[in-house]
Amino acid sequence: MAKSILVVEDEPNIVLSLQFLMKKAGFDVRVASDGEQALAAVEDRAPDLILLDVMIPKRDGYDVCQTIRSNPDYGDIYIIMLTAKGREVDREKGIALGANDYVTKPFSTRDLTEKVKLLLQGAD
């Protein structure tokens, strides 16, 4: 069964591109455009990996990451954070909160795809 990925992003164009990339790589893709939708989607059916944008409405990416990590049930969900903030502190904050990786926009589609594949294949 294909691994499932949750894309959490509020920019429709970026969502579209991520959706395209992940589908092309053979993953099952769901989309959420804010923090609450993201958590609801996780609760509904836990994905294998979340591409989580930091700057999203209602509850930001850090918040969502922290909430998921505080629930032991979701311990095996991989989280890659996406952000337009390029500062080192932001990266450290994301890693500290339990993200597996941290990608700065604009990102290389190949690198991102590689990272996702690496994480998910390693899990097998």
């Binding site: 164009n13 990102f107 589609t109």
Partner: peptide, 21 residues
């Protein structure tokens, strides 16, 4: 930078998608 990175992300992503596909 945040505001600039957002459209830039879309542009780069789709350019690469078009290029690689």
């Amino acid at each position: 930078t945040h505001e600039l990175r957002t459209p830039l992300t879309s542009i780069r992503s789709f350019s690469e998608i078009l290029h690689d596909t």
